[in-house]
Design a binder for these strands. Structure first.
Lengths: 173, 173
DNA sequence: ACCTATCTTTGCGGATTTCGCAGAAGCGGT
DNA sequence: ACCGCTTCTGCGAAATCCGCAAAGATAGGT
């Protein structure tokens, strides 16, 4: 498994091929991408092993990983399926909004029950995933806290029945 | 930060308060929950530090973490926002299905572009998050591969414009 | 009560990894 | 060429990870 990703790393190192689009975020070269890829397979993989895979010294990998974490480009965390773990109600809420949609998204972001907020194109302006203690809590968050936000025109809820897949391998195919 | 979570751990250790509901999945006691919580804050936190926080030896924590990983209860990985990282098109697809919905969900699970599949109650039977190279790829996956699955009645897509929040802290509030 | 089988925890060396730092490259700008 | 800045490398010390054998806990059977 995990074969050599970058072989020579002499000229193609500071690959700045695609930093023109992509707003304010820091541009990632091929090496950092490869490092992230390694950590998507195993968040605890030793720096030396990553270094061997991407063609860098242990210290260099460590330095880059630290920077990626500091910049907020990635985070290394344990992820679970709350439903499997056992004690929560989970739902996706589609929101139709008017006015400053981003401000509504920010308000959602501030709610601790909201795990995931994304602005979308389509018949919803915002999708928000929420995790609650139980049905009462879920109802409270959706009907009271979210629907009452100024600018929220309507919402539609999708209560989770079963999580089938959850991966973080977007580059590993 | 990270204060003592479990103090005595003599009698309340094998806390089996809520394993009755929660299908086939392995029941988690309070200590494992606390361990997961620690790793949700920092996936690379040393076992000894976790042990101190939850009241267990380093070796015991290590063993429990390994078991949680083996059982698939949690995974320790690097997570990023693909849109921030820079080079993908991402969308949520709501699917209306007839017949064996779970079989359709399984088919989606097998697609490498699909990162997230959840069966829901509401006006969609399935929600699937897909990550693609570009618009052509996205169009191909949605219109050709997903819509052509037997039993898929209709789909609706929500292309991601901006990810606002992404956390994995469901127990840390 | 006692014994047994099973599972979990603990303690402890040795191998491995992480950490911090000083020096060496690499890369523009002047 | 020189300088400032960033990144990479090498290395020693400290901390961590790992495997293992013994101790402890739990549940069931007799």
């Amino acid at each position: 498994m995990h074969s050599e990703v970058v072989a020579s790393r002499s000229a193609d190192q500071r690959d700045s091929s695609r930093e023109s689009r992509n707003g304010g975020s820091p541009q990632l070269d091929a090496v950092s991408l490869a490092i992230i890829q390694q950590l998507q397979e195993d968040g605890r993989r030793p720096y030396a092993a990553i270094g061997k895979a991407v063609g860098l010294s242990e210290a260099a990998v460590r330095q880059r990983v630290q920077k990626l974490l500091d910049q907020g480009v990635m985070q290394i965390v344990a992820v679970t399926d709350p439903l499997t773990v056992g004690f929560r109600r989970q739902a996706m809420v589609g929101i139709n909004a008017e006015g400053d949609v981003e401000k509504i998204a920010d308000a959602l972001t501030d709610m601790s029950e909201v795990e995931y907020v994304v602005m979308t194109a389509g018949s919803f302006d915002i999708l928000a995933e929420i995790v609650c203690e139980d049905d009462d809590h879920l109802l409270d968050v959706i009907n009271k806290r979210i629907r009452s936000l100024p600018g929220v025109r309507s919402t539609e809820s999708f209560v989770y029945l079963k999580l089938k897949k959850q991966t973080y391998m977007w580059g590993t195919r």
